[in-house]
Simulated scan of single mutants.
Amino acid sequence: MSILSFRKPSKTPAPTSDVTAGFLQGHSIEVMPRTAEKVEDFRTLLAPGTRVYIAHIDGTPIEDMVATARRIAAEGFEVMPHFPARIIADADTLGDWIARYQGEAGITQGLILAGGVSEPKGAFDNAMQLLDTGLFDKAGFTRLHVAGHPEGNRDIDPDGSDRNVSDALRWKQAFSDRTDAQMAITTQFCFEAKPVIAWAEALRTNGIDLPVHIGIAGPAKLQTLIKFAVACGVGPSLRVLQKRALDVTKLVMPYTPDDVVAELAAHKAANPDFAIEAVHLFPLGGIKATADWVADRTGTAQARATQ
């Protein structure tokens, strides 16, 4: 039995600002087939046109992925399935996935990434190898996103540097210059604004001009967030959660990303050329909790309730 007690969030919308509301416009959210099954109709939760990423966890049949994509697209949302390199057997399999998403669900977008397994199960080890097949361009995919790591990635750079991560982003920048697809960097979630701002500014200094869709964890119990943060290799910003865990007055309250979002929004307002283009939400505490948080802070809660 847990010794922690978490109070339910208030139903009253939290105070927000026009700056934060504007920053959240155009946000995206991530789901999995098994979590999507629990949502009767995404139109009751999400703003029209929201981009919905579908995470492809190792072991999930492609049939489930395509069915989920087809269902969410039919409800009027942009759908971006994951293409994890390390669980794709070979180029023929990749071509089949692309054809099925396109033919059965009308999908022409994808998040191209290495994937969450440590060792490749087939011919591919990283996102660059998938892009280099030319299969996405051949199929006419209109938007391709790639992964970003504001706090580094120990799987890619075991020595703690950012050398390999930076080399990969430079390759992806060069690829964006030769593809007709729109490209962007979608990042791992972080809990602190200052490292994100420094990383995003360093991208521009190093000639990376791809827009950034910054990963933000939605409202959740503190113990849930810490579990996911450790499992996903979140870097130094994990200290925000650790510090919160030491504060008894905050320990009993669910975490919300208001502080980090407000700080990033303020920086964007003061620096319009800031690399962050949009927010990508990880609903670690549930899709409804995250959707409600966004609706409260963008002033769309009442309108959504009358749909």
Rank of each mutant, 00 (worst) to 15 (best):
Ala202Arg: 13
Gly218Phe: 04
Ala220Gly: 04
Met183Arg: 00
Cys232Ser: 13
Cys190Ala: 11
Gln223Pro: 05
Ser176Val: 13
Asp180Trp: 04
Thr205Tyr: 07
Lys194Phe: 10
Lys221Arg: 14
Thr187Arg: 08
Glu192Ile: 06
Ala229Arg: 14
Ala217His: 04
His213Leu: 13
Ala198Asp: 09
Ile208Glu: 01
Ile216Gln: 02
Trp199His: 03
Arg178Asn: 08
Ala200Ile: 09
Ala193His: 04
Leu203His: 04
Leu210Met: 01
Glu192Cys: 07
Asn206Cys: 07
Cys190Glu: 10
Arg178Tyr: 04
Cys232His: 12
Ser176Ala: 15
Gly215Ile: 05
Asp177Thr: 11
Ala220Phe: 11
Pro211Gln: 01
Ala200Gly: 12
Thr179Asp: 06
Thr205Val: 15
Lys227Leu: 15
Val230Cys: 05
Ala231Ser: 15
Phe189Pro: 11
Ile214Met: 04
Lys194Asp: 09
Phe175Arg: 08
Pro211His: 02
Ala217Met: 07
Gln188Asn: 04
Ile216Pro: 02
Thr224Glu: 11
Gln182Ile: 13
Ala193Leu: 06
Asp180Tyr: 07
Pro211Phe: 02
Ile208Asp: 01
Gly233Pro: 14
Thr186Leu: 03
Thr187His: 11
Thr179Gln: 08
Ala200Thr: 10
Thr179Gly: 05
Gln188Ala: 01
Val196Ile: 06
Ala220Val: 09
Gly215Thr: 07
Val196Met: 05
Leu210Ala: 00
